[in-house]
């Protein structure tokens, strides 16, 4: 289990009579960039919420960073980072104040916070200002860096590049690769199929199931499609 960042076995979540996530199983290796794709309503968000402790599974098992989401969520919380599809830093606080908040919440020492925030500002090329004054692309890059502040084993990114221009998206993916190179497992959802091609492995969720899983190249060969985009459309509309 040491090589696995995420291990999901027969994970299910029902809301009343509706089964949002139906018996899914998959594994993500440590240090991997894993693309978690699916149409809106396919059950992606529900699955992520079970992995980060915002929803309890109805049945099945899931381990994150080698820990059980049912019994060891408290330990998991300190070892994962999360960036939601909505911008999630405080706009009325400065960059440094946001860093101090999240650093403090994740139990970093003052010295660590000072050191890491300096490094972060330098690598992003940012000056300390109110977050609300930054352009959207910068905000997203900053939010990602803040999610990595406590050097989590796994970072969950829920549509991190929504509404961002292509150049910034490219820069964002450079940040993702840099994080993966440092050993952080990246679990990312996206609607941009070109981004899916950047991932080490991807899965495509369809109606609560996993419709396909593998490296982008494997999947294209197996389904005999030129792009992931086409595979996605074919799976989502099985007609």
């Amino acid at each position: 289990m040491s090589g696995l960042a995420i291990e999901v076995v027969d994970l299910t979540r029902r809301f009343g009579g509706f089964t949002a996530v139906d018996n899914i199983s998959f594994e993500v290796a440590a240090g991997e960039v894993f693309g978690f794709l699916g149409a809106n309503g396919a059950g992606k968000t529900t699955a992520i919420k079970m992995l980060i402790g915002l929803l309890a599974p109805t049945s099945g098992k899931a381990h994150v960073a080698g820990l059980d989401v049912k019994t060891q969520m408290d330990q998991i919380r300190t070892r994962i980072g999360y960036m939601s599809q909505r911008f999630s830093l405080y706009e009325d606080l400065t960059v440094l104040e946001n860093i101090q908040l999240y650093g403090g919440i994740y139990g970093l020492s003052d010295a660590q916070i000072t050191e890491r925030s300096k490094a972060m500002l330098a690598s992003l090329g940012l000056a300390d200002d109110f977050v609300g004054r930054l352009p959207l692309g910068w905000k997203q890059k900053l939010a990602f860096s803040v999610a990595l502040l406590h050097e989590p084993a796994v970072v969950f990114l829920d549509e991190p590049t929504g509404g961002v221009d292509p150049l910034t998206r490219r820069q964002f993916w450079e940040l993702i690769y840099a994080a993966a190179a440092r050993g952080t497992t990246v679990f990312v959802t996206t609607h941009y199929m070109d981004e899916a091609e950047y991932c080490d492995r991807i899965s495509i969720m369809v109606d609560g199931h996993i419709g396909a899983i593998g490296t982008p190249r494997e999947l294209k060969e197996k389904w005999n499609v030129p792009t992931i985009d086409e595979l996605f459309v074919r799976l989502a509309r099985p007609a």
Partner: peptide
Amino acid sequence: ERGTLEILLVSPL
């Protein structure tokens, strides 16, 4: 409303 609560709930807080 702004989604920051979700981040807080995922954190060790």
